[in-house]
C-alpha cells in the first residue's frame, strides 16, 4: 500500500512562508500566494495537487478556490505531476528566429517524448514557454532557476545528460534556498 504522507511544509519552508507573509500589510497576507505556491511546488515534487493547494489556503487563511483560480492562471504552476526536471524551452519570436523550433524537435527526439509529456523514467518533462527575456542569447531553455543560453544541439544534449546523471529534483525555488533562507529579509 502506498504510504499517505500528511500535507505539511518542512519547518524551514514554513518559517520562510511566515517571513514572506509579513512583507504585506496586516490582513493582506493573500499577497504572499505566488511565492508560497512556488515554495509549495519545490516542497511537493514540482506540482500542485488539490490537497497541496488546500493546505496553502489554510496557511494564508483564504478560501481554497482563491488558490485554485490563481494556480490555474499562472503558467509556472504545474497542476499535474511532472518529471524531476522540467525543461522549459522558449518558443517566442526571437528564440523562434534563432531556431527554437528545431531545438524542441531535437529534445523530443533525444528524450523520445512529445512536448508536454514526461519521460517513462520520470526524469524529464518537456514544456515550451513564452519569452523568458533571454532573446540576445537565443535559443535558450530554463531548467529550475537556471537559464541555459546560446544553445546548440550538442550543448543542449550535454546539459540534459548532466541533469540525468545527477538525477535530482530541480525546482524554480531551489531546495537549498528553502533549507537556508538567510538571504530573505523579513
Amino acid at each position: 500500500m502506498a504510504e499517505i504522507k500528511p500535507i505539511k511544509f518542512s519547518d524551514e519552508a514554513l518559517q520562510l512562508c511566515h517571513k514572506i507573509m509579513k512583507r504585506y500589510p496586516e490582513g493582506k497576507q493573500k499577497s504572499a500566494i505566488l511565492p508560497v505556491l512556488h515554495i509549495a511546488q519545490a516542497e511537493f515534487g514540482g506540482w500542485l495537487s488539490a490537497p497541496v493547494m488546500d493546505y496553502v489556503a489554510s496557511l494564508l487563511k483564504i478560501q481554497p478556490v482563491e488558490v485554485y483560480e490563481v494556480a490555474s492562471f499562472y503558467t509556472m504552476y504545474n497542476l499535474k505531476p511532472v518529471g524531476k526536471c522540467v525543461i522549459e524551452v522558449c518558443r517566442t519570436g526571437p528564440c523562434w528566429l534563432m531556431g527554437a523550433e528545431d531545438l524542441v524537435k531535437f529534445i523530443e527526439k533525444k528524450l523520445n517524448i512529445k512536448e508536454g509529456e514526461t519521460t517513462a523514467d520520470g526524469m524529464f518533462t518537456l514544456k515550451t514557454v513564452e519569452c523568458l527575456a533571454s532573446c540576445g542569447t537565443a535559443p535558450m531553455m530554463q531548467i529550475g532557476e537556471t537559464y541555459h543560453e546560446n544553445l546548440t544541439f550538442e550543448k543542449c544534449s550535454d546539459i540534459l545528460d548532466n541533469y540525468k546523471a545527477k538525477g535530482e529534483h530541480v525546482s524554480h525555488w531551489r531546495k537549498e534556498r528553502i533549507t537556508n533562507h538567510s538571504d530573505i529579509k523579513q
Binding site: R23, A32, P35, E69, K185
Partner: peptide, 27 residues
C-alpha cells in the same frame, strides 16, 4: 523594500494587472 515574484503571465507587466497580481489574484 521587498521583492515579490510573479509566476508566469505576460499580462502582469500591465500596471493594473501587476497590482492585482501583487494583491494575490489573477492578473
Amino acid at each position: 523594500l521587498y521583492v515579490h515574484c510573479g509566476a508566469g503571465a505576460y499580462i502582469c507587466g500591465e500596471e493594473t494587472g501587476l497590482i492585482e497580481s501583487l494583491e494575490g489574484k489573477r492578473g
